[in-house]
Every structure is written in structure tokens, then in C-alpha cells.
Design a protein around this nucleic acid. Structure first.
Lengths: 223, 223
DNA sequence: GGTGGCCGATTGGCTAGACCACTAGTCCAA
DNA sequence: TTGGACTAGTGGTCTAGCCAATCGGCCACC
């Protein structure tokens, strides 16, 4: 059995330290030299352990100032998912995860949307129709619509994750809209989804969003 | 504007190195001393950069052997999500993300399930009924059912993410089953979900799974 | 000829100590 | 009151070295 590296243990003990001392967002940790002394390891190892917590999003390290417990839970997944997407943006498994989250956003939006949310969504539909009438395909309005849904869902973790997953997915949506006749179809989809959200029909919103995503995402299908 | 730390740059340059040299899973990177020389930085900084890539899941560092490009994409998110869940397991936002992924798994399972998958799922239902008849609540069979769904979905990324999200969710499910009359209700839900999957009805499988999760997850509702 | 153990080269893991770079607070002079 | 210099404290980086795990080849032995 291979033994775990020291800095792994340091990371674990630092997590425990934060938990035991009930440290919340914004609270300050002891300096690196202090921690090295308390844990009985070299400062180098402490720094490697801290790097792990930093990448993980648990702490915020400020040069010349100190080490602080981070604020947003969403920040934890953000850099990682971004990394993952950058590495292989058209991985099908990734698209399926993304679809699931966005359909869930539609479901939540159906129950939580405010009048402002509905107004914003309606605006994107008007804008998309105008763009299509003007000969465009409504890429901007399309993106705004999907973002509006996510915003209406009021779930920061979901929003952050989706934001990063979408970095790669953006061009897929753009490519999809370029297909002949796709833009009006997408517009009709949007209207149907918004209708379900207005009606507070969570199941229907979820179903229609999923159908919409599967239609637009299926680029490789033999026509 | 604050300048980025050196080790961040090292991590980025190492990522580029992997990409430019078309290194795939299993390929070996130069040693730490080599990299330090090539990048013109100290070994310390190289090690910190490597730690980032390691946490990120991009590379696998082996003591006494060398540094290799990692294999599984799922490994990227796994340790991070586990971390996140450990930190705050009853965060409602987390539950919503988890529900979305599991409902998506049900949807995918409806189209991809093999006869073996169906048989395994049916077995868990039989086992759960037997356990309930014997006075239990079928915790084990319940867990097996949900895992069986995920397995049938054939999406490694989704499976890995869910596996880690569920570490914290496990006890929620267990607590839910303890409620009077819940176990038979869950069993009925399972049967309905399996029915939809057998019928290859993706929408229905998705809908029923979501309904099931929302029912069992709503622990804090005033009864 | 095959087999087992030894040994050394290579590689990552860890330490110690020093100095640099940045931040925030203090204090003094204008 | 205000502006800037100073300073203590903190993270960032480097050097040099030794420790520990791994792998592969060599060699004695069967």
C-alpha cells in the first residue's frame, strides 16, 4: 500500500483546523510560518497543502496580507469545470450533464420566477424575433434567454457550474442556429418554454427545455 | 492590477506543454528538475504548479517513478465534488443539482438500458419488498436501485459526479425511509420508474424520478 | 538456462534557511 | 488634515541538500 504524501495530510489537517475552530468566510488563518510550527512540518509542505485548498476554492491566499477562508461555494467548482470543458468541449458526456442542469434550471424557474424574470425572458424572445426578421439568427438573444432561465432558478451553485460548462457549449449553440430553418424553430421552443414557466408548470418547463436542448445539440445526427 | 503568482504561470505552461506535445493518458512528462530547467524557474515553483495539475486531476505523480498524464476525465471532478459535499452536505442548492443529474440518469437509462440492467433493477425491487415485509425499510435495496439507474445511463462523468454528491445525500435517503409509510411509497416509486425505463419512455422516467426525489428529499417540509 | 536477490541510478518528497515582493498600518512632516 | 516615507508582517521564490520509493540491470546461485 502506498503511503499518502505529507502535503495531503497537511491539507486534511488544515480543513479540520478550519472546521474545529468554526472558521467562516472571511476569517483569517495563521501565517504559513505559524502553521508549519504547529503542524510540525516545513513551510514548503504547508504551502503545498495550502495550494490544494486554494485550488479547491476553500481558502483565498493574499500576497503580503494573509490567508482567508473563501466566500462562495460556487467558486469551488468553477475553475475546475472550466478546466474540464477547456480540455474537451465536445465530450458527449459533458453535454448530457449540461442538459440535465439546464433542464433543472427551467424546472426551478417555473416555480421561482418573479415578474421581472418573466419580463426579461419575454424581451429576449422579442429581440430574437426581430433579429431573425432582420436576417440574423439571434445568437445573442438565444444566449440571453438561456441565461435568464438560469437566473430565475435562483441557485448559485447551479448557475456557476452551468456558466463554466457553457463556455464550450456556446459555439455549439451558435453552430446549431446557423442550420437552415433552425432559428425560427428555436424561437418557437423558447416561446413554449416561457409559456410553461409563466404557467408555473415545472414538469412541462423541464420537458420542453430538455427537448429543445436535445434538438439543438444533436449536431452530428445524420439528417 | 495584481500580478499572477509564478506557480500559476507554471501550471498554465505545463498544460500548454501537454497540449502542444500531444500528450495523452499514460504519457510521461519530464522530471521536476528537467522542467525547472526548461521553464527557467526553481524546482519549488515547478512542484507547486504540478500540485495544481494534480488536484485538477490532469496529471498523476508517482513517487520514485515519474509524472504521467492522467486517464479518466471523471477523476477531475470527483475529489472536488467530494470536498464540496463534505463541507456542507445539506446545502439545498446541492440537492437540486443532484436531483437534476439523477433524473437525467433515469432519462438516459430509458434509452440505453440493457436486459442485464433491467434484471438488476428488478432484483433491487424484489429485495426491497422482501426487506419491507420483514419489517425493514430497504435502505440497501434503495441505494442499489439508484446506483443501477446510474450504471444503466452509461455516462462516466455523470456517474462519478453523482457518486460523490451522494456521499452526503446517503443519510438523507436513509432518514427519509424511516418516516412512517415512506418505504412502501418509495418502493412504488421505484416500480413506476422501472416501468418507464422498460418502456423506453425517457420523458416519463425523468419525470417520475424527479417526483420521487422531490418527495423523499423534502425532509424539512412542515408535514 | 532460469531465478532470485542485491545494488545503484533516477525520480519525487521533504527540510532548512535566506531573500524578495507586496500589504497595511504607523508616524511624521508639510 | 493630509500626504508620503517607513516598517513590521506576510506570502512568493530560490538554493542546496538529503531522504525515500521505484525500476532496471547485474550477478550469484540453483
Amino acid at each position: 500500500m502506498p503511503r499518502a504524501p505529507l502535503y495531503e495530510g497537511v491539507a486534511t489537517r488544515l480543513r479540520e483546523f478550519i472546521e474545529v475552530n468554526r472558521l467562516g468566510p472571511g476569517d483569517r488563518l495563521p501565517g504559513e510560518r505559524d502553521l508549519a510550527g504547529q503542524l510540525g512540518v516545513s513551510r514548503t509542505s504547508v504551502r503545498q497543502g495550502l495550494t490544494i485548498l486554494r485550488v479547491t476554492g476553500l481558502v483565498d491566499i493574499q500576497h503580503g496580507n494573509g490567508i482567508y477562508v473563501s466566500h462562495n461555494v460556487g467558486d469551488v467548482l468553477a475553475p475546475i469545470t472550466a478546466e474540464l470543458v477547456m480540455a474537451n468541449p465536445e465530450l458527449p458526456a459533458l453535454g448530457e450533464v449540461r442538459n440535465a442542469l439546464e433542464a433543472q434550471a427551467a424546472r426551478l424557474a417555473a416555480t421561482r420566477r418573479t415578474p421581472d424574470d418573466l419580463a426579461a425572458l419575454a424581451t429576449t424572445i422579442v429581440a430574437m424575433r426581430a433579429d431573425i426578421d432582420a436576417g440574423g439568427v439571434g445568437i445573442v438573444a438565444d444566449r440571453d434567454f438561456h441565461r435568464g432561465i438560469v437566473r430565475a432558478a435562483v441557485n448559485e451553485l447551479l448557475a456557476d457550474t452551468l456558466e463554466n460548462l457553457s463556455d464550450g457549449a456556446g459555439r455549439i449553440a451558435a453552430a446549431s442556429l446557423q442550420r437552415p430553418g433552425q432559428a425560427p424553430r428555436s424561437l418557437a421552443d423558447h416561446e413554449a418554454i416561457l409559456g410553461a414557466i409563466e404557467a408555473a408548470d415545472a414538469d412541462e418547463a423541464n420537458r420542453r427545455m430538455m427537448a429543445h436542448l436535445e434538438r439543438t445539440g444533436a449536431l452530428d445526427e445524420p439528417s
